[in-house]
Measured scan of single mutants.
Amino acid sequence: DHWHVHIDGERIRLDGASEEFIRTLEELIRRGTDARELKEIIKEYLR
C-alpha cells in the first residue's frame, strides 16, 4: 500500500507504513502535535 500525508504543505510518502502507524499518526494529528515534530516521527519510522 502507498500512503502519504500532507504536513505543512509538504507531501510525505509513507511507503510500507503499517495501518497501526497510520492510526498513531492520525491520533497525534488529532492531539495537535506540531508539524515539525510529526515530520521527525515519520523520518524516524521510515529509517
Rank of each mutant, 00 (worst) to 15 (best):
D1S: 12
D1I: 10
D1Y: 09
D1G: 14
H2M: 09
H2L: 06
W3I: 10
W3D: 06
H4S: 07
H4Y: 11
H4D: 08
H4K: 02
H4N: 05
H4M: 07
H4F: 10
H4A: 06
H4L: 08
V5E: 02
V5C: 04
V5G: 05
H6F: 07
H6D: 15
H6R: 07
H6W: 11
I7H: 01
I7K: 01
I7Y: 02
I7A: 02
D8W: 01
D8P: 01
D8E: 11
D8A: 08
D8I: 02
D8R: 03
D8N: 09
D8Y: 02
G9K: 04
G9N: 07
G9E: 05
G9I: 04
G9V: 03
G9M: 03
E10T: 06
E10I: 05
E10R: 04
R11M: 15
R11D: 15
R11A: 05
R11P: 12
R11Q: 15
I12W: 12
I12G: 01
I12R: 01
I12K: 01
R13E: 15
R13C: 11
R13T: 15
R13P: 13
L14S: 01
L14I: 14
L14F: 06
D15R: 13
D15T: 13
D15Y: 15
G16E: 06
G16V: 06
G16Q: 07
G16Y: 10
A17S: 05
A17V: 13
A17Q: 03
A17F: 07
A17P: 05
A17G: 05
A17M: 08
A17L: 05
S18L: 04
S18E: 05
S18F: 04
S18W: 03
E19L: 15
E19V: 14
E19S: 12
E19P: 13
E20P: 06
E20D: 09
E20S: 13
E20Q: 11
E20A: 14
E20Y: 12
F21M: 05
F21N: 01
F21P: 00
F21C: 01
F21I: 05
F21Y: 03
F21Q: 02
I22K: 14
I22G: 02
I22N: 02
I22D: 00
I22T: 05
I22S: 02
R23C: 04
R23M: 10
R23S: 07
R23W: 08
T24W: 09
T24E: 10
T24P: 00
T24V: 11
L25S: 00
L25R: 00
L25Q: 00
L25H: 00
L25W: 04
L25E: 00
L25V: 10
E26K: 14
E26V: 11
E27D: 10
E27R: 11
E27V: 09
E27A: 12
E27G: 08
E27Y: 14
E27N: 10
L28H: 06
L28E: 04
L28C: 04
L28A: 07
L28G: 01
I29T: 03
I29F: 07
I29Y: 06
I29L: 09
R30Y: 09
R30Q: 07
R30F: 08
R30K: 10
R31G: 08
R31H: 08
R31Y: 07
R31T: 08
G32T: 02
G32I: 03
G32W: 04
G32M: 06
G32L: 04
G32V: 03
T33V: 13
T33I: 13
T33F: 08
D34S: 14
D34E: 09
A35I: 10
A35R: 05
A35E: 07
A35Y: 07
A35T: 10
R36V: 11
R36H: 12
R36P: 06
R36Q: 14
R36G: 12
R36W: 14
E37K: 13
E37H: 11
E37G: 05
E37F: 15
E37A: 13
L38G: 00
L38W: 02
L38N: 00
L38S: 00
L38H: 00
L38Q: 00
L38D: 00
K39T: 06
K39D: 04
K39N: 06
K39S: 05
K39E: 06
K39G: 05
E40I: 13
E40K: 13
E40Y: 10
E40R: 15
E40L: 14
E40S: 11
I41M: 12
I41W: 09
I41H: 06
I41S: 02
I41G: 00
I41E: 01
I42Q: 00
I42Y: 03
I42K: 00
I42A: 01
I42W: 03
I42V: 08
I42G: 00
K43N: 10
K43H: 11
E44W: 11
E44N: 11
E44I: 08
E44L: 09
E44S: 08
Y45E: 03
Y45D: 00
Y45M: 04
Y45Q: 03
L46P: 02
R47T: 10
R47D: 02
R47V: 10
R47C: 06
R47S: 12
